[in-house]
Nucleic acid binder design. Sequence first.
DNA 1: TGTACATCAGTGAACGCGCGTTCACTGATGTAC
DNA 2: TGTACATCAGTGAACGCGCGTTCACTGATGTAC
Lengths: 206, 206
Amino acid sequence: MPKKRGYHHGNLRQALVQAALSLIEVRGPTGFTLSEAAKQAGVTPAAVYRHFDGREDLIAEAARQGYEVFADLMEYAYAKGQPSALASFEATGRAYLAFARKYPGHYVAMFESGISVNRTPELAMVSNRAHGVLERAAVELSRHIAPDKRPPAQMVSAHIWAMCHGVVELFARGSPGTISPFPPEELLETGIGIYLRGLGLLPADH
Amino acid sequence: MPKKRGYHHGNLRQALVQAALSLIEVRGPTGFTLSEAAKQAGVTPAAVYRHFDGREDLIAEAARQGYEVFADLMEYAYAKGQPSALASFEATGRAYLAFARKYPGHYVAMFESGISVNRTPELAMVSNRAHGVLERAAVELSRHIAPDKRPPAQMVSAHIWAMCHGVVELFARGSPGTISPFPPEELLETGIGIYLRGLGLLPADH
DNA sequence: TGTACATCAGTGAACGCGCGTTCACTGATGTAC
DNA sequence: TGTACATCAGTGAACGCGCGTTCACTGATGTAC
């Protein structure tokens, strides 16, 4: 049974989110306009207001869906690494980059659009869920370090988060003209490797 | 002899750059408008065109001046660390963060405004000068690592660059509502420390 | 199965806005004699 | 020192544009009987 096409769109809400995502990906967070998203969904700008409070609200929904996928990916990666704390930790780092590369529109909506994570309780919750995975992995990892030379787990997670974010911003979504000297995946892999060696969690002579 | 005030501004070009910088800092790269910069400099929007080709050109000049200061700071930090390769390397990392915190307007114009570094040859050159310092520091540092377990110097510099950038973006210029668990300086210091230990350049039991 | 009706997702016209940019102009400043 | 003149950094009015948002409306869809 084919989807009915006609006066009523059928699933305009999600179509608008998709349009917003692809626009954000192509044009950047600045370039996104509600009017263009509406046009891309084959609809008048005014129709958007049947489903969203406005431009910001549409972006926020795109970001929310991104966080949802992001958190799922992180949890999946974590689970796959278990029961090894080290494997789980490394996997979540990789998942971060993988997400950024696979869902660039979502990534920009989440991290570069200026949408505050505290905009709605729902957004805050799903964002916490995502970050929580990395922190849990860091806590477990910390247990394998001698207490006297163990940095706070939250700090470890912040370091890795920062490196992931930095690699993504600088080398995975490079500004035009900037050429990355290495594939981002390799850069992140080796970077995290050296860091973990510094924590005494990987053999030094490798 | 007091600066003459009157019909002619005297130093409008630089006044516009300053206005642009403070607007970019406050409103973000999106929020910056040529008209508002002109108003802030006490001048009609049309006057801007006596000194710049337009909006983009004004942002590019702000970015260029930022790169100039940035490169100077990096070179100064590097020189201060000499003759120790390690001290120079660490100092340049710190200088990155210090620049981002001291010149937030410049930083945004340089890294978040969407201005390509290849916009003009002059911009490309000064950007290369800045990056060159970190790479030089990384090359010197590499000499202290046994060749068989030495990652490419360019990779080391990319790792540190990524971590600096990540710390700045996530923890130093935190989006509203996001609270950093540690001061960015401490985060970067410890992060680089662990990384250098991973390279075998710092004692493991510290 | 057919009809009357309520619902509500869309239209399309209109709005006010601030933007970047252009243009002919003006009048202060600096210079030549 | 004074005058005539060229320069050029600013004005201010005007432009076309696309934006986000509002509003009364319309007509397709779904439901009650």
